[in-house]
Amino acid sequence: MLRFLCKRLALAIPVMLVVITITFFLIRLAPGGPFDQERNVPPEVMANLHAQYNLDAPVVRQYFDYLGDLLRGDLGPSFRYTTRSVNEMIARGFPVTMELGLYAILFALLVGMPAGIIAAMRPNSLQDYVPMSAAMVGICLPSFVLGPILMLIFGIWLGWLPVSGWGSTPGDKILPAITLGSTYAAYIARITRGGMLEVLSQDYIRTARAKGLSTWRVVMVHALRGGVTPVVSYLGPALAGLLAGSFVVETIFQIPGLGRFYIQAAFNRDYTMIMGTTVFLAGLIILFNLIADVILVWLNPRLRQEAGH
């Protein structure tokens, strides 16, 4: 286990370094300096600005300075909002995005897993077709279609739920969470069904049935542990998708989260903010993939042996 952990960490660190390096040099490739939009800046002011943002040093030097700053956890100041640092923006936006993502994944698991289990209990029956058709709808309705439609129906036509904001009016977190979570609910339902079907056809399940256990007990106690392992391995990649999805959902519902900041930074060409957020989000995704892998090995002892050598 420890060895496996070390192996995965040994992969995660170079990946992180690749991310940082690519991001850094891509930003440096961007045509035009970050202050080109400001008109009539006296050369000495420009020089000052460059010095303040460490842009007068050679690029390689800048790169290592940036790496050093990152090690100290300092993502630098924002180009656009001179009084704010990137760290502050992340500290403000990330908890919101995290909360949204948490509700979304909870929604996805609470809807998707039962749907998948129910479908797997009677394959190729109505009990299978109904949830799986719903899952297909969930997969084919991207968040930027589902979100506005939910807003239109529940917010504007029926007037049941608020259509924007975060934590300011009661119930304003419901629509964003459902919008973000529905695609994942759909995938989780399909994956759970697949995993459960495989487990349910195995001998030890037949044994459990032969012992006279109720279907319910067989499914919930004996099959579930094996059946949900594919779901766990899906959760890591799902998180990366969730973060990207939060860009859309936060923009639609006007939620002051990290995704919205990122899109705003992209439009403002706020390079340090883009760079800082990219590195931060990438680190997060890599971390969650790592955790998902570790949980997976822990759940499935057979993988533990493979991972050992």
């Binding site: 992969l11 995660a12 990946v15 991310v19 990366a240 990207a244 992209a266 995704i285």
Partner: peptide, 18 residues
């Protein structure tokens, strides 16, 4: 494997910005 671990949606946005 390494490329798989990169957050691509973010990178594509980065590319379109640059």
């Amino acid at each position: 494997d390494v490329l798989y671990a990169l957050p691509f949606a973010i990178f594509i946005i980065l590319l379109t910005v640059i």
